[in-house]
């Protein structure tokens, strides 16, 4: 039995095995996931997860370590393809297009769905080259001037421009941790994606840098859809509009952030939120 009987269900999802509490649907969704399962070899890492991600919203994925929230996030731009032995089934649609459809090229997908990682990972190149890398490989700028424009715009949006504008030729690895992470965000923005996935983007940063990134997410929401995995419930509460709670590879509960944190409906969610485990 995959769905414990004691779960009260209120979702109007027309499937037999509903396991998630709360409304997984949104109107005019950007990403629609239906019955997603992920296997690492024998391990069943994600079990039957269905979830929508809306436009211009920040959705936070929370849950204890190893619950599958990062794995789920990496499904959304097919980053799991790089992991040997990983198998994904179910349906994930971006703007109505199945991203796991046969013959679909991951390159444009990833240009549309950017990703920021847990540890800042600037390339061992200059700050300028880091940001310019995406536009360069995709041929987004027709000349040097345009490229410089894109780099400046991206760095501005990432809130880094004022700090680095005089050091564009310096190596990106020389920046502080928080700056590096904002550089990575700028690098992602430079490709002009529609969705940005963030995998615990602040876990390696100090509180001040974290505050800056959180502010940045709020600003970015205007233009992008953001899905963020976080360990910090305060962060989820601060930045997101909706929150999804994962437990042992299952999506337990999803809802408005305020509701999840003040009035969780599922026992597991409540236990987690109140700090009984996690």
């Amino acid at each position: 039995m995959r769905h414990p009987e004691n779960i009260p269900t209120s979702a109007s999802f027309s499937r037999d095995h509903i396991q998630t509490v709360g409304n997984i649907f949104v109107k005019d969704a950007r990403i629609e996931c239906r019955s997603v399962d992920v296997f690492y070899g024998e391990k069943h890492a994600i079990q039957d997860v269905s979830l929508d991600v809306g436009r211009n919203e920040v959705i936070a994925l929370i849950g204890p370590s190893g619950c599958g929230k990062s794995t789920f996030l990496r499904c959304l731009n097919r980053m799991n393809d790089t992991i040997p032995g990983c198998r994904v089934s179910g349906e994930i649609k971006l703007d109505g297009q199945d991203i796991y459809a046969e013959g679909l090229d991951v390159v444009p997908l990833r240009a549309q769905v950017g990703m920021v990682f847990q540890k800042p990972n600037p390339f061992p190149k200059s700050i300028f080259e880091n940001v310019a890398y995406g536009p360069r490989i995709h041929g987004l700028a027709s000349n040097k001037l345009e490229l410089e424009e894109i780099v400046e715009k991206s760095l501005r949006r990432a809130g880094l421009w004022e700090e680095v504008k005089d050091y564009l030729r310096h190596p990106g690895t020389g920046l502080s941790g928080g700056q590096q992470q904002r550089l990575c965000i700028a690098r992602t923005i430079a490709v002009n994606p529609e969705v940005i996935l963030m995998d615990e983007p602040c876990s390696a940063l100090d509180p001040i840098a974290t505050a800056k990134i959180e502010q940045l997410m709020d600003d970015l929401r205007e233009h992008y859809t953001i899905a963020i995995v976080t360990h910090s419930m305060q962060q989820a509460a601060r930045v997101s509009q909706r929150t999804a709670y994962f437990h042992l590879g299952k999506l337990i509960e999803v809802g408005e952030t305020a509701q999840i944190f003040t009035d969780p409906r599922h026992q597991l969610t409540e236990d987690y939120i109140t700090g009984r485990f996690g």
Partner: peptide, 22 residues
């Protein structure tokens, strides 16, 4: 580190672009 490759892939680089440029 794999994280560098991931960074490039996440931007939409192909495998050969990742190898050659990163």
């Amino acid at each position: 580190p794999q994280s560098l490759r991931d960074g490039a892939y996440a931007l939409g680089a192909t495998q050969s672009e990742t190898i050659r440029q990163v």
